[in-house]
Amino acid sequence: MQKTEGEESKAENEEVKQVTLMTSDGVKMKVEISIVYEMEIVRSFIEVNDADHSVPFPLPNVSSHTLDLIIELVKNEYDDEFMKTFSHDELKEVLVAANYLNMKTLLDFIATAIANLLEKKSVEFIRNFFNIVNDFTPEEEAEIRKTNEWVFQDLDED
């Protein structure tokens, strides 16, 4: 949109400032600056460069779907109920993205949520959750079971 200089400064006062982010799947998303400021990786860039916000900031490690979820989480002030609608894959993607974007509050929130999910669950459940292959040898496995018999008791249903 074309604006004269006078109109632009007026618009800035009235509208919420936005920053354009470019996700890994090539989607340009306009995000409120208050949310962007939680992303240390973007914030430091914006602050240093006093930037031209019209140039999209590239986020090669975050998909548009994950960014959508993150924006909604921040907008909802980290609402537990909303987070509970996430699939396991979404939880992990948000976790990794929060780490990459250096969003301290979000990382803390999502790590707590995942820890709560894993609490009192079997080792097998944890492996499935993170798609981890059990690389202990049968001998090591037997040794672990022998010395930690009680570890495998008192579990919640997966």
Partner: peptide, 14 residues
């Protein structure tokens, strides 16, 4: 997860 959960299960994952 805390020390107890970590020691009981996480260290046996891989």
């Amino acid at each position: 997860l805390g020390a107890i959960e970590t020691l009981m299960r996480a260290q046996h994952v891989c």
